[in-house]
Amino acid sequence: MSTTNKSRLEALAIEVIYRIFDYLDAETILFSLRCVSKQLYSVAITYNRYELDFRYMLKSDLPVIARIINPENVVSITLSDELRTKNQIKLFFFSLSY
């Protein structure tokens, strides 16, 4: 008999976890929750409602996120080429080419 301890979050149906993800930013999902367990890793990879707002992300996170998320799973992207986020749009499209 196997005794596995699932967290209460992992015991939820995938649809419920998706609803929770709807209220979180991409960095929290990808850099925190995805690393908790294999199940949450799988759910984060298949989650198909990512709204990416790169105005508030570190520039170094942009290529990492572009590699992790399947473009088909993104519903919106906000990019900026302001002083704080200079060349972000160019970097984003360069990251997608890999």
Score class of each variant (00 low, 15 high):
residue 2 S to N: 12
residue 2 S to D: 14
residue 2 S to H: 11
residue 2 S to Y: 12
residue 3 T to V: 11
residue 3 T to N: 14
residue 4 T to D: 11
residue 5 N to F: 09
residue 5 N to C: 11
residue 5 N to H: 10
residue 7 S to G: 06
residue 7 S to P: 08
residue 8 R to M: 15
residue 8 R to I: 10
residue 11 A to W: 09
residue 11 A to Y: 11
residue 11 A to F: 05
residue 11 A to D: 10
residue 13 A to I: 11
residue 14 I to R: 09
residue 14 I to E: 14
residue 15 E to M: 13
residue 15 E to T: 07
residue 16 V to Y: 07
residue 17 I to G: 04
residue 17 I to W: 04
residue 19 R to E: 10
residue 19 R to P: 04
residue 20 I to W: 06
residue 23 Y to W: 11
residue 23 Y to A: 09
residue 28 T to L: 04
residue 30 L to P: 07
residue 32 S to N: 07
residue 32 S to P: 03
residue 33 L to Q: 05
residue 35 C to R: 14
residue 35 C to G: 10
residue 36 V to Q: 01
residue 37 S to V: 06
residue 37 S to G: 02
residue 38 K to P: 03
residue 42 S to I: 05
residue 42 S to D: 12
residue 45 I to T: 11
residue 45 I to M: 08
residue 45 I to S: 09
residue 47 Y to M: 03
residue 47 Y to T: 00
residue 49 R to K: 13
residue 52 L to G: 03
residue 52 L to H: 00
residue 52 L to M: 08
residue 52 L to Y: 07
residue 55 R to P: 04
residue 55 R to F: 05
residue 56 Y to G: 10
residue 57 M to P: 03
residue 58 L to C: 09
residue 62 L to K: 05
residue 65 I to H: 02
residue 67 R to V: 09
residue 68 I to H: 06
residue 68 I to L: 05
residue 68 I to R: 07
residue 70 N to K: 08
residue 70 N to S: 13
residue 71 P to A: 00
residue 71 P to K: 03
residue 72 E to D: 10
residue 73 N to R: 04
residue 73 N to I: 01
residue 77 I to V: 13
residue 77 I to F: 04
residue 79 L to T: 07
residue 80 S to Y: 03
residue 82 E to Q: 14
residue 83 L to W: 07
residue 83 L to A: 15
residue 84 R to C: 12
residue 88 Q to Y: 06
residue 90 K to I: 13
residue 90 K to V: 13
residue 91 L to G: 10
residue 93 F to L: 08
residue 94 F to N: 12
residue 95 S to E: 10
residue 97 S to H: 08
residue 98 Y to C: 14
